[in-house]
Design a protein around this nucleic acid. Sequence first.
DNA 1: GATAGGGCTTCCAGTTACTGGAAGGTCAAG
DNA 2: CTTGACCTTCCAGTAACTGGAAGCCCTATC
Lengths: 139, 139
Amino acid sequence: MNISDVARRAGLPAKTIRYYEEIGLVRPGRSANGYRAFSETDLHKLNFLGRARALGFGIEDCRKLLALWEDTERASADVRRLATEHLARIDDKIAQLESMRETLGALIRDCAGDARPDCPILRDLSGGTGDRARATVRE
Amino acid sequence: MNISDVARRAGLPAKTIRYYEEIGLVRPGRSANGYRAFSETDLHKLNFLGRARALGFGIEDCRKLLALWEDTERASADVRRLATEHLARIDDKIAQLESMRETLGALIRDCAGDARPDCPILRDLSGGTGDRARATVRE
DNA sequence: GATAGGGCTTCCAGTTACTGGAAGGTCAAG
DNA sequence: CTTGACCTTCCAGTAACTGGAAGCCCTATC
């Protein structure tokens, strides 16, 4: 299979697949003309990567998951731990975003949104009145 | 004020403040010795930026908000629109993360997490059974 | 006056996970 | 033979910093 075939079948851009090769996540063979030659196993790996990435796993997590996936002796506890840690990160992000949403929603509700220059959003951001903003945290 | 003073009072790392100068968000003066000399207005701007960033506004949004903040003639509707768009982005991200959380949570619940090699998480990622993963979207 | 410490400066590189584009080789069809 | 689609590599850019090196400046102490 050439790269555009796997790209279509894995639902990933060709550029991304080349990148995955560059960082060692897949190692397709090469045809005589220099084109990458992908096996069914490569395709399967790319599908795996696509799914894991869609779940928000980072590249290094994907590398570990892929190694676990290829290791038939591994314990499911290893995978579970990776997944659980990742779930905790997701929960953190959700909590942060919800805090942002709450603050920003309150500011928007208080803002007339008309042609007058007085704006509670800017007033709050500039630190004049309350300290609603700043409740949130950086990632 | 030297940079470490504003850094402390604005709650931002000095590195970040230099970066904000580099991209034109603040323009502190310079002392004879070449040190940055920050005014109270600069400090106020940096506080503003810190709050807006904590709400998840991107740098370019911050630039616009800062311009609106300095423009006493602006309409509050302009600010409200920026904030509302940003709120929509936040809602999107939350929805995506919640979808991920749901899928990943279900996978973790099904996984024994013991020493046996059989693992439903990897089975799902490898595309064997259902198509639970892939429901989610990239940012 | 010399020195030590901390603070300040600039510049360069690295982070995440790609994405866009240029320059050029390859292949199948007409 | 030419056209067009496909493939290759390499370089640069994205967001928003962060870390580190090399070197100047200022103050205090001996």
